[in-house]
Design a protein around this nucleic acid. Structure first.
Length: 233
DNA sequence: AACTAGCTCAACCGCCGGTTC
DNA sequence: GGAACCGGCGGTTGAGCTAGT
């Protein structure tokens, strides 16, 4: 950390200029994303690696959607925030073209007030006699990885993004089609976990890296960041 | 026109976990 | 094992803009 600070001495800070943007974009176009510690040198920028990374990820990246948030997106943010809390990167991963910074800013400027006023209303409601309210419970995702021989995978090689969602176990999409891959609940039937909890059944699947060891050897998946495994606590 | 308050969002900061040596 | 380094995350800040007075 001390090295970090001493290294960043004399490095430019503040708003990026058009010229700096051009240099950074040219550098990423040439070398690709990643190796951020090399980017300032390669691009000829007097900026720290973090500043370069942030500028690219939050502003220059051509995949960023700069339009206003749609109603669907807002609804999704509200639901996911209820589920995940302030896990902005996870929430943003479900919203194509949106960055974690966008989502975080939108939350703080628009949605937080909504939530606060809603909570105040709930408090008022709570005061009414003979009515009980359940406290909101944040269900944190439990990242998992599976052994290559895990029965959960049925020995299938995973090529397409899949989502494994379950309270106990999960079935794996055999053809990569999400709609055919329904989570199995504790009763063994294909209850739509997403539908009941989030109504997200028809959404496209975003990507997210949520992996944890199941055993001592870790399965290598080609689309590993697309592999979700949720488990309610 | 001038001032102020509130809002937005790009950017920074500190921290953390993973990797390398 | 531990120091150094890196990428990444969430919280926070502050410059610039806008609306209200």
């Amino acid at each position: 950390m001390h090295m970090e600070k001493s290294k960043s001495r004399g490095v430019r800070k503040g708003a990026w200029t058009y010229e700096e943007d051009k240099l950074l974009k040219a550098c990423i176009d040439k070398y690709g994303e990643g190796k951020w510690h090399l980017v300032p040198q390669r691009a000829g920028l007097n900026r720290c690696r973090k500043s370069c990374r942030l500028r690219w990820l939050n502003y220059l990246n051509p995949t960023i959607n700069r339009e206003n948030f749609s109603e669907d997106e807002v609804d999704m943010i509200l639901r996911l925030h209820k589920l995940l809390g302030n896990r902005w990167t996870l929430i943003a991963a479900r919203l194509p073209g949106r960055t974690s910074n966008d989502v975080k800013n939108y939350w703080h400027t628009h949605l937080r007030k909504k939530m606060i006023s809603r909570k105040l209303e709930e408090k008022k409601e709570k005061k009414k006699p003979n009515e009980t309210m359940k406290a909101h419970e944040i269900i944190k995702p439990q990242p998992r990885t599976f052994l290559s021989h895990s029965p959960r995978l049925n020995g299938k090689h995973i090529e397409k993004p899949i989502v494994a969602v379950s309270t106990k176990d999960a079935s794996v999409a055999k053809d990569g089609n999400f709609d055919t891959m329904l989570p199995i609940n504790d009763n063994g039937d294909h209850a739509m976990w997403w539908e009941s909890l989030l109504n997200l059944r028809n959404d496209k699947i975003g990507s997210c890296s949520l992996l944890q060891e199941e055993g001592n050897s870790i399965l290598e998946l080609p689309n590993i960041e697309n592999f979700f495994y949720w488990r309610s606590q």
